[in-house]
Design a protein around this nucleic acid. Structure first.
Lengths: 163, 163
DNA sequence: CGTGAAAAAAACGCAGG
DNA sequence: CCTGCGTTTTTTTCACG
């Protein structure tokens, strides 16, 4: 069984990535297929796991997340038992929107959102720094977003206050 | 005119973020509203710009992007004319999926995908390092993704080869 | 692949409470 | 906010070339 993608599949993916709500007939038109076979391709792409889901993209600032930071963390030991505690704790923090283990002297890269600088300071002091085995934390605050909207961001418990 | 969000709005956003394809009646049920007013809320949230769009989430590895890296770049001068050339060039690179100006000794943080290490090396040498005014580039390669799927990733021109 | 078509489901909009 | 109703659109499936 081979499941390679042809050009049309790639174009379908490109379009669905930009607009997941396009109707299947419009989509079919744009890739120059008729509705029925086009729809089958979409379902196939979903089954193949190429499309992992459909998500609303939310406006970070409108939700009250005025701050974003890249955070690098170095931990004491890299053995499984101690790092897995760290990993679990970080995964549970909803302000952490991205979390990767990385190669190099530092061990982890986090992308974090916060309401403002105060909020971020508290997050750092009261949560990140207190996690088990944390040796060093370096923050790089975002000043401007040139590319790449964040998706999957936390929804605050209380309402945002757009001004 | 005030446009604050109540609890139900936030729950709607949370649900749409997880599944943009939910039907409005199912959504209504989950937030304990009836279909009609629930639907109006969604439209209102869209008009308010809280929902910026609906997007298919794609599988990075299935698309052939086996590598991901965080890249910090320091440029020569921070004046507008020279940095804007850099910014434009980076924005045009489709492998760059996230691109922020940051505070600190480094000037920019990029999140980059590549097919493999070779591909990444070429990207670095042939593109990033050659951009005008680049002083220093530091790479942090992702070893493991603990949290935060990437969205809006480039669709390769040629088909991916899932094995 | 294509076409056409038809049944089922959803979206959308409006009335009256 | 609700319920209900109707119209339009879309989805989904199927038969056939």
């Amino acid at each position: 069984m081979h499941n390679d993608l042809d050009d049309i599949d790639l174009r379908i993916l490109r379009i669905l990535q930009a607009d997941a709500r396009i109707t299947s007939s419009d989509l079919a038109q744009q890739v120059h297929l008729s509705q029925s076979p086009c729809w089958k391709r979409v379902k196939r792409l979903e089954k193949m796991g190429l499309v992992s889901g459909y998500h609303a993209g939310l406006n970070r600032r409108a939700l009250g997340w005025g701050m974003m930071a890249f955070v690098m963390v170095e931990i004491e030991k890299q053995d499984d038992s101690s790092s897995s505690a760290f990993i679990q704790a970080v995964q549970a923090m909803e302000e952490v929107v991205m979390f990767h283990g990385i190669a190099g002297p530092q061990d982890f890269m986090l992308v974090v959102v916060a309401r403002d600088l105060d909020d971020y300071g508290q997050l750092l002091q009261r949560q990140l720094h207190r996690l088990p085995g944390v040796r060093r934390v370096s923050s790089f605050l975002s000043l401007e977003e040139f590319k790449g909207q964040l998706h999957h961001m936390p929804i605050p418990a209380a309402a945002a206050a757009p001004h």
